[in-house]
Simulated assay, not measured.
Amino acid sequence: MHTPISAERYDSWSEERCAGIEIVAGRVVVRPSASKRHHRLARILANALDAAAGPDWNADTDFDVRLHDVPLTNRRPDVVVYRADTIDLTPTRPEHVPLVVEVVSPGSETTDRVVKADQYAKAGIPFYWRVEQAATGVPIVYTHVLDPATRAYRDGDMFTGVIKAAAPFSVTVDLGAV
C-alpha cells in the first residue's frame, strides 16, 4: 500500500508533473484526456465568465483548487472563477472561489455529477455548474447553489444552449454554436 501524498510533498512537484492528475484523499487520480469539444466548451465558458466578472474576479481553466490539506484533496475543475487579488496565491482555496464548472465527458459522469459536486459543496464553494454534452450537440448546463446550512447543493436553473445566469454575477453565454 502506498503512503498518501502530503500537501508538502505535492507542493514540491513541478507543474508538469501535476498537470494531468488530481489528488483525492492523498491518492493520485489520473485525469483522462478530454476531447476538443470538452476543451472548447471550457474555454468559451471561462472567457465569457472572465469578461462578465468585472475587475474583482478572474475565470480560468484547469488549475488546482485545494479542497483539503489533510488528507490532501486537490481538484482541477474545468473552469474556476476566483478572486482576482489571489492570482499569485498558491494553492487556490475554496474561500477564494465562488464558482466551479465541470464539463462532463464519457467516463466522468459519476465523478462530475456526484463525487465532485459533493466535495465542492462540503468545501463551501457557493456555485457549481455542470455542463452535459447532449446527443443533440447543444450543451445543457445545470446550475447548483450551495445551502450553507447543509453544505449540499440545491438545484438552480437549467439552460439549453444559452446560459443567462444572475449569480454569482450576471452573464450570458451562447454554447449552442460549439
Rank of each mutant, 00 (worst) to 15 (best):
4 P>Q: 14
6 S>M: 05
11 D>N: 13
11 D>W: 05
12 S>K: 14
12 S>R: 15
12 S>W: 04
14 S>R: 11
15 E>T: 04
15 E>G: 02
16 E>T: 05
16 E>H: 08
16 E>M: 10
16 E>A: 15
18 C>Q: 15
19 A>W: 11
24 V>D: 10
25 A>T: 00
25 A>W: 05
26 G>N: 05
29 V>R: 10
30 V>K: 04
30 V>Q: 10
32 P>F: 03
33 S>Y: 12
36 K>I: 13
41 L>W: 01
41 L>T: 02
42 A>F: 03
42 A>G: 13
42 A>Q: 01
43 R>D: 09
43 R>T: 09
44 I>S: 04
44 I>R: 10
45 L>P: 01
46 A>W: 06
49 L>P: 02
52 A>L: 06
53 A>P: 06
53 A>E: 04
53 A>Y: 08
54 G>V: 05
55 P>S: 15
55 P>F: 14
57 W>S: 04
57 W>A: 07
60 D>F: 06
62 D>A: 14
64 D>Y: 07
64 D>S: 15
66 R>V: 13
66 R>D: 00
67 L>S: 02
68 H>D: 11
68 H>Y: 10
69 D>T: 15
74 N>P: 01
77 P>V: 01
79 V>C: 14
79 V>Y: 13
81 V>G: 06
84 A>E: 06
84 A>R: 11
85 D>A: 08
87 I>Q: 12
88 D>L: 07
88 D>K: 09
89 L>E: 13
89 L>Y: 14
90 T>I: 11
90 T>L: 10
91 P>M: 08
92 T>K: 13
92 T>C: 13
93 R>S: 11
94 P>C: 09
94 P>I: 11
96 H>E: 08
98 P>T: 05
98 P>K: 07
99 L>V: 02
100 V>A: 11
101 V>L: 09
103 V>I: 11
104 V>T: 05
105 S>W: 01
105 S>E: 04
108 S>M: 07
110 T>E: 11
111 T>G: 01
112 D>G: 12
114 V>K: 13
114 V>W: 07
115 V>G: 06
115 V>L: 15
117 A>R: 15
118 D>N: 15
121 A>C: 08
121 A>L: 09
122 K>E: 09
123 A>K: 04
124 G>M: 08
124 G>P: 00
125 I>V: 14
125 I>F: 05
126 P>D: 14
127 F>L: 00
129 W>K: 07
129 W>R: 07
132 E>W: 03
134 A>H: 05
135 A>E: 10
137 G>D: 04
137 G>A: 10
137 G>Y: 05
137 G>W: 05
138 V>L: 09
142 Y>L: 07
144 H>A: 14
147 D>A: 00
147 D>F: 00
147 D>L: 01
148 P>R: 15
152 A>F: 03
153 Y>W: 06
154 R>P: 15
157 D>G: 15
158 M>E: 15
160 T>Q: 09
161 G>V: 11
163 I>Q: 02
165 A>P: 08
166 A>L: 06
167 A>I: 00
167 A>M: 12
169 F>H: 04
169 F>R: 02
170 S>N: 12
170 S>E: 14
170 S>L: 13
170 S>I: 05
172 T>Y: 02
174 D>G: 08
174 D>V: 09
175 L>H: 09
177 A>E: 12
